[in-house]
């Protein structure tokens, strides 16, 4: 029976093709309309799956790119830090070199390699010693001013007692009034100008420089700025607390004054090393 129907269908299609096509078209319209709904549904699902898949693939790519960019940022940060450190080193060394060229005293550049091995002294260890011509009592400065003086020298290192140590003493001169005194360190890490005459008009803000009377420092190297005046009742002298101009906790390089020749160049008030604002930044 089925075979008979199939043979009839073939006969109609081949013998009456146009009519058969029209018939199939007519019957097919509603069928296609019905089928279109699940078709669109599946198509939507397919699109969603594709979108998810593509996003996943894209995310994988982005994750990889993100990782690469992070590595790049780390690398660039490292490079930036290195460049900044190099720039800071260059600024400091340039200031040191300029200072060295400006003064006629013979100096030797040295790097700070350590601090005092005990807690009892404010001192630092430099990488230059007797083999480089360093001897005890030599002065140590930076472009900003006095750092301290060498108290001990081994063959390749030397120990510098800072100007803020109570055991240190340097002769100082008040730049404005031209009065002299002894600059000693204090327990608080500052310095004090002692033996200032009672009639002195020294006041806060006055600049104190080296007087050149003691060995190690030529005249006119900046020591610090007067912070306050101390007058004790019945005392023969007054004293002035000084804030050292050099940030002694951050000194990385310094110049050791190996010769105490007089300084031909004189700044205002006899200062041999007027400190430029740009140089102050390099401290």
């Amino acid at each position: 029976m089925l075979l008979l129907l199939l043979a009839l269908l073939f006969f109609v299609v081949f013998l009456l093709p146009r009519q058969a096509r029209a018939l199939l078209q007519t019957v097919g319209q509603p069928v296609a309309w019905v089928v279109s709904f699940p078709l669109k549904g599946f198509a939507a699902i397919d699109r969603s799956v594709m979108a998810v898949w593509e996003r996943y693939l894209a995310l994988r790519g982005i994750e990889e790119e993100n990782r690469r960019l992070r590595r790049e940022i780390q690398y660039l940060k490292g490079q930036n830090d290195q460049l900044q450190a190099l720039a800071a080193d260059t600024r400091r060394l340039a200031a040191l070199l300029e200072f060295k060229e400006r003064t006629s005293v013979q100096t030797l550049a040295a790097r700070v390699i350590g601090r005092d091995s005990t807690n009892w002294y404010r001192a630092m260890v430099l990488d230059k010693g007797e083999l480089d011509g360093v001897r005890a009592e030599m002065g140590v400065v930076t472009p900003a001013g006095v750092v301290g003086r060498v108290v001990k020298a081994t063959r390749s290192t030397s120990v510098v007692l800072l100007v803020s140590d109570p055991n240190n003493a340097v002769t100082g001169l008040i730049q404005r009034t031209r009065e002299e005194g002894i600059v000693e360190g204090t327990a608080e890490g500052r310095a004090r100008l002692k033996y200032v005459p009672l009639l002195s008009t020294v006041r806060a803000g006055d600049t104190v420089i080296t007087s050149g009377l003691t060995g190690g420092f030529p005249k006119g190297i900046m020591i610090g700025v007067v912070n306050r005046i101390e007058k004790e009742e019945g005392a023969l002298f007054q004293s002035a607390e000084i804030v050292p101009d050099v940030d002694l906790s951050r000194v990385e390089e310094a110049l050791i004054i190996t010769s105490s020749n007089p300084v031909p160049q004189s700044g205002p008030g006899g200062a041999a090393s007027p400190v430029e604002p740009s140089q102050r930044e390099a401290r």
């Binding site: 091995s117 009892w120 002294y121 260890v125 108290v151 001990k152 120990v159 140590d165």
Partner: peptide, 13 residues
């Protein structure tokens, strides 16, 4: 050794 790298006298430490 500590005295060598300190400002102290060479006998103290």
């Amino acid at each position: 050794v500590q005295d060598l790298f300190s400002a102290s006298d060479l006998w103290l430490n």
